[in-house]
Design a protein around this nucleic acid. Structure first.
Length: 511
RNA sequence: GGUCCGUUCGUCUAGGGGUUAGGACACCAGAUUUUCAUUCUGGUAACACGGGUUCGAUUCCCGUACGGACUACCA
């Protein structure tokens, strides 16, 4: 079996879409599993749509996600260059080959002439393709004009494109690794432009030429390419490369969470989740889109989530590291139907991976946030906070967002807790507890607990009845990590102050 | 419109001629937790429809419906 060589071939027209990340991932998994090569090829044949920074963004995104490139623009490789704009001469050369073998022809039709053809077909009620075996004889091209006239036009610098001459009434069958045999008749195909009038190739030509030259073994790409796959097969045949044709695998699409249709940036914005791996600022509009990274998603969580959108191992294991995915992956187990994008599941994965992180790593993150907020905190304290918080958060930023009370006394108190639990008994216990605390020297979570137990026993009031009140007096909230640990972390003096403040300011209900 | 592709719980999916149609997320309930969350236990919930083939079809075949992709000198 020939070496596995796969490529991810994005176009640098903007940020990398999350669906693109999944495509890259599947390619990568196959390459790694088979001991093959992962190639990043930049498909920048459309000069009008080129966006500065997009290429760098794509590479940064893949790197963040843990998808490593073996050959590419940055890495180099035996088949360089990996940027299609730098391979222009190659496409011209291969287009010439097709021209001389009679598989392609020059076309000189203007936009208006093409438009006129379209009108004629519309009037005739035809369902056929625009420029095809049925209509090419009526147009201005090297087939109808003859060699002499064609040469004259070429020499005079007339604009032209090179079109592929689709064979007449032929059945094209291709085997897709995911969908099985797909067949289509060439009467349904049109004479696609291979070389544009600016001298650049179209996707179809460049893609086939490069995949051949780069010895690509598997073309794994989105389902949106399935309709043009027969054209690509025809191209391989025309070049005489049929035996070296890569195997195709067209991936099911990522669908919007509600309703139907391809997942778009619009949907993501509307539903409030990222669509790009990293934050992206569109240089044209100036619009900024928050990425998965900046939203607190861990790369391992995103990868695990993405891997399961369209693929599954056939076992009941859900948690997979990249290495495990590499082991378990197989194209055969990729599904055929589109997968709706469920951000809740991504959050669950994130929560899982976040919990698995050592406290020290989370503490480093928290400390960085605190620095930005100009809040002092020792490493020991950060460690304790992370340990206390980690079981109840899904994103690292929640360490700070849900843990502000560790650093500042509450200014407001949860109304529903106050109305339900802030009563005479609670005030009694809190007062006694606060007074007892004042008297002591040593203080930690265990002491806080035993002290509170003593107080409640003495006053003969159940601990459950006053816990919420105590919590709200210290954190302002109705929920949070272990209260005794919170008191230990903020310290005795702060605990006493906060209880005192609450007793002084909150209404003295007598319920 | 045409071509191609698809259709199992709300979502991701397993399964496959005879199953109590399995798991996960979400949701709901109970337990535990002195509170919230965690954790644990349990629960609700699916084979798009119609014809075949067959002793038997969710599974195979054909239609229908629905959905999607494509239909550029964009990728």
């Amino acid at each position: 079996m020939k070496d596995v060589r796969v490529r991810f071939a994005p176009s640098p027209t903007g940020a990398l879409h999350i669906g693109g990340v999944r495509t890259a991932l599947y390619n990568f998994l196959l390459a790694r599993q088979q001991g093959g090569t992962m190639i990043l090829r930049i498909e920048d044949t459309d000069q009008n749509r080129y966006v500065p920074g997009a290429e760098q963004y794509i590479m940064d995104s893949l790197e963040w996600a843990g998808i490593k490139i073996d050959e590419g623009v940055r890495e180099g490789g035996l088949y360089a260059p990996y940027r299609q704009s730098e391979r222009k001469h190659l496409y011209q050369q291969y287009a010439q080959q097709l021209l001389s073998s009679g598989h392609a022809y020059y076309a000189f039709d203007t936009e208006q002439e093409i438009e006129a053809l379209r009108e004629r077909q519309k009037a005739a009620g035809s369902d056929q393709q625009q420029y095809s075996s049925a209509t090419r004889t009526t147009m201005r091209n090297s087939l109808t004009l003859g060699a002499e006239e064609t040469k004259k036009l070429l020499d005079s610098g007339t604009n032209y494109v090179i079109r592929f001459k689709i064979p007449e009434n032929e059945k094209v069958v291709l085997t897709d690794l995911i969908r099985g045999e797909v067949s289509v008749n060439t009467t349904q195909l049109d004479d696609k432009v291979l070389m544009k009038s600016d001298g650049m190739p179209t996707y179809h030509l460049a893609n086939v030429v490069d995949d051949f030259l780069m010895k690509i073994s598997h073309v794994i790409r989105g389902e949106e390419w399935l309709p043009s796959a027969p054209l690509h097969v025809l191209l391989y045949k025309a070049f005489g490369w049929e035996k070296d044709m890569p195997q195709f695998a067209h991936l099911p699409l990522l669908l919007k969470p509600d309703g139907n249709g391809k997942l778009s940036k619009r949907d993501a914005d509307r539903m409030g989740f990222p669509i790009f791996p990293l934050t992206w600022k569109d240089p044209n509009t100036g619009e900024q889109s928050k990425g998965y990274r900046e939203s607190g998603y861990l790369p391992e969580a995103l990868i695990n989530f993405l891997a399961f959108l369209g693929w599954n191992p056939g076992t009941e294991q859900e948690i997979f590291s990249m290495d495990e995915l590499i082991q378990a992956f197989s194209i055969e187990r990729i599904g055929k139907a589109g997968a709706k994008f469920d951000i809740q599941k991504a959050q669950w994965f994130n929560q899982h991976y976040l919990r698995a992180k050592p406290d020290a790593e989370l503490a480093t993150y928290l400390l960085k946030t605190l620095e930005q907020e100009n809040i002092e905190c020792t490493k020991e304290k950060a460690l304790k906070i992370c340990s206390a918080m980690k079981e109840r958060i899904a994103f690292p930023q929640e360490l700070w967002e849900h843990g502000k009370f560790f650093f500042a006394a509450p200014k407001t108190f949860d109304e529903s807790v106050i109305s339900k639990k802030w009563n005479t008994e609670a005030r009694q216990v809190l007062t006694a507890f606060r007074n007892a605390l004042k008297e002591m020297n040593a203080f930690d979570a265990t002491i806080a607990k035993s002290t509170l137990e003593q107080v409640t026993t003495t006053l003969n009031i159940g601990m459950g009845k006053i816990m919420q009140a105590l919590r709200v007096s210290i954190t302002g909230l109705g929920g949070g990590p272990d209260l005794m640990m919170i008191m230990e972390i903020i310290g005795k003096a702060e605990t006493v102050n906060r209880i005192t403040f609450a007793l002084d300011t909150l209404p003295q209900h007598t319920t």
